[in-house]
Design a protein around this nucleic acid. Structure first.
Lengths: 103, 103
DNA sequence: TGATTGGTTCGAAAAGATTGGAACTCACAG
DNA sequence: CTGTGAGTTCCAATCTTTTCGAACCAATCA
């Protein structure tokens, strides 16, 4: 019985560049990443743009970002905290995030 | 009667970041872009990896790259020359290509 | 112990992308 | 002209992604 609380995150070394690019190639996902660039957010806080996005859809967007190694999704009480894996990504793909998020 | 010889290329200003990222999110397309980073190539020269890729498939990969504003595809006799639109892309998305192609 | 809140997962439908054969076009050689 | 070479376009099959309601789960509150 997999407890659903802790979601799997890829090791940054296993993340392929093309997967990262794919995850960022969707405007809604890119926007989420931009928001997270300023610091962690809960699911509810995140996605201030797209306010009426169904939660299953938002959850799926997050799944793609998580599986691509872009965001960490960790439980915190009954909410979840989303964090951009900036340092790790900078290590793995120097300059990529900065060029995409703009200086 | 649209002559097929000259293919349409988007103005770099009209190119969306997400479209560029999508075009690069496919390993075969990314590889093509890497090859073109060293200078223009004809269709036949390009894709030294993937040597037995059907030509219609290769043509389609090129179309995606062209429509995303990444490569220019121009006739030269009965062949076609493919050029990475590096300068324009650097202008529009500073640092992006360098970080993706590696220093 | 419910009931509620904040979120994930499932499942199925719709939309979009990829693949590749076949037909086509155009430039050039003979 | 006719043939050939280099490539594009068309089309259909297949595969992948997206979308979202519904069911579910775990933590907290009353």
């Amino acid at each position: 019985m997999t407890t659903v609380t802790n979601l799997p995150h890829p090791d940054i070394g296993d993340v392929q560049l093309t997967e990262v690019l794919f995850a960022l190639s969707d405007p809604a996902r890119l926007e989420i990443v931009r928001e997270l660039a300023d610091g962690p957010l809960t699911m509810a806080e995140c996605g201030s743009t797209n306010p009426d996005l169904p939660k299953s859809t938002k959850s799926h967007l997050m799944k793609v970002l998580r599986e691509a190694g872009l965001v960490r999704n960790e439980p915190d009480g009954r909410r979840r905290v989303l964090t951009l894996r900036k340092d790790e990504l900078d290590q793995a793909f120097p300059g990529l995030l900065d060029s995409i998020l703009g200086d």
